[in-house]
Design a binder for these strands. Structure first.
Lengths: 205, 205
DNA sequence: AATGTTACCGACCAAATGGTTGGTCAAAAT
DNA sequence: ATTTTGACCAACCATTTGGTCGGTAACATT
C-alpha cells in the first residue's frame, strides 16, 4: 500500500509545479517538458499518471485552484453578520498577499479565464463553475446583510455581487504592473465609498 | 509612388487580420502562418514588411489598439461638464457593443495585459502606456467634475479612476461567458449607486 | 532600353511541441 | 520463490514554431 502513497505524492508534486509554471507563463506557453525538467522526471512518468495536458490541468483546477479560492475568497464570507465588513476584510486580506508577493501575476482564476476564453470549452466550464460558486456565496452573504439590517433592502444582491467580482478581477490585473500598494489603497477606499451607498440609510441620524 | 500605397495597404491588411486572430486565439497561440493563410500571403511577404512577430505586434498596438481605445474610452470623456454622466454613457456604449458582438472575447487591452504579464517586458510597456493614458484622462475628467460642482470635492480623483478602470476590466472579463446583457445591466446599476456616493452632497435638500 | 528597386514567393531550417512505446527495476501479491 | 504490478525512463515521432534565404516578376528610375 506504499505504492499508492508514492503515486499520490508524485502526482501532487507535478500539479503544484504545473500550476506554478502555468500561472507564471501561461498554459499554452508552458510545455510539459518545462514542468518535468523542474522536477527531474520523465515524459513517461507524466503520461503514466495523466491522460493528457488538458486532463492534467483539469486536475489542477479541482485540487488546487478551486480550494485556494474557496479558502481565501469564499469561506471567510460565512463569518459575521455584517457582510460589508466581512467582504471588506476579505478583499483586504486577499489584496494584501498580492501586494507582498514578489512574483504576482494577477488573479489566478482571472488569468486562466482570460487565457481559455473561446479556446477550450471544457476547461472554461470548470473555471466558470468556480466563478459561479463565488457569485452564489457573495449573493448569499449580501442577502444576509440585508436580513440583518446592514444593507438597504432595495439593493439588488446579484448586482452587488457582479459589481464586486468585476472590481476584484480588474484590480488584480491592474495591481500587477505599477505601484500595487498604492492602487490597493485607492481601490479599498473607493470600495468603502460604494458600500456606503448601499448601506441601510439611517435617515439623517 | 504607387508602390508605397501597395506597401501600406498590405501592411494594414496584415495588421487587421493579425489583431483579429491574436484577440481570438491569443498571441502565443496564433502563428504567423495562421495569419498568412487567412490572407493568402507568404512568409516572405511578412518578413519583408516586419522584423519579427514582436515588432509586428508592436505596430498593431500603436496603430489599432491604441486608436480604438482612444476613440471609444478616452475621447468621449472630453465632452460635457458633468463627468459622471459622461463616464456613465461612455461605459454604457462600450459595454453595449460588447453585448451585441457575437465574437466577444473580452476587453482587448485587458486580455493582452493578462497574456503578456511577466512574459514580455517590451510589449507590457506599450500596453501599460495605454492604460496610463486612460487613467490620466479619467482623472482629468473627474477633476473637471469636481470643479464644475458635480463631484464632491473631498473625493480622491485618482482613487475613482483606479476603481473605474478595475471595474471595467473586470466586467468585460465576466461578461464574456454568461448572460452579458444581464450582467451589463446589473453592473451599470451598481456603478450608478457608486456614483451617488461620490456626487456633491446636496445637504438634505 | 537598361538598370535598379521592391513586393512577394516558397522551400528550407533548427528548435520545440504533445504524445507514444518498449523497456527496467523495485515492491506487492501469490 | 515466483509472478505480477506499477512507477518511471528515454528514445522516438509527427507536427508546428519563428525565422532565413535565394529567387522572380512587376514596377520605377535612369
Amino acid at each position: 500500500m506504499d505504492k499508492n502513497l508514492k503515486r499520490m505524492a508524485t502526482m501532487h508534486r507535478m500539479q503544484v509545479t504545473g500550476l506554478d509554471l502555468f500561472y507564471r507563463n501561461g498554459y499554452y506557453n508552458t510545455s510539459i517538458d518545462d514542468i518535468l525538467k523542474e522536477l527531474s522526471l520523465s515524459k513517461g512518468a507524466f503520461y503514466h499518471h495523466f491522460d493528457s495536458k488538458e486532463d492534467f490541468f483539469t486536475e489542477i483546477i479541482q485540487n488546487l485552484i478551486m480550494r485556494k479560492i474557496y479558502t481565501v475568497l469564499i469561506e471567510p464570507l460565512e463569518g459575521q453578520d455584517n457582510s460589508l465588513d466581512m467582504i471588506t476584510s476579505c478583499f483586504d486580506n486577499a489584496l494584501e498577499t498580492a501586494v507582498h508577493n514578489e512574483l504576482d501575476y494577477g488573479f489566478v482564476l482571472g488569468n486562466f479565464i482570460n487565457e481559455f476564453n473561446g479556446r477550450n470549452a471544457v476547461i472554461m466550464k470548470h473555471l466558470n463553475d468556480i466563478l459561479k460558486l463565488w457569485e452564489v456565496h457573495l449573493v448569499t452573504a449580501i442577502q444576509r446583510g440585508k436580513h440583518n439590517g446592514y444593507i438597504d433592502r432595495h439593493v439588488e444582491s446579484e448586482g452587488v455581487a457582479v459589481f464586486l467580482m468585476s472590481a476584484y478581477l480588474g484590480i488584480r490585473t491592474i495591481m500587477v504592473q505599477s505601484s500595487p500598494a498604492n492602487r490597493k489603497y485607492r481601490f479599498m477606499s473607493q470600495m468603502r465609498m460604494y458600500f456606503k451607498s448601499i448601506q441601510t440609510k439611517q435617515a439623517a441620524v
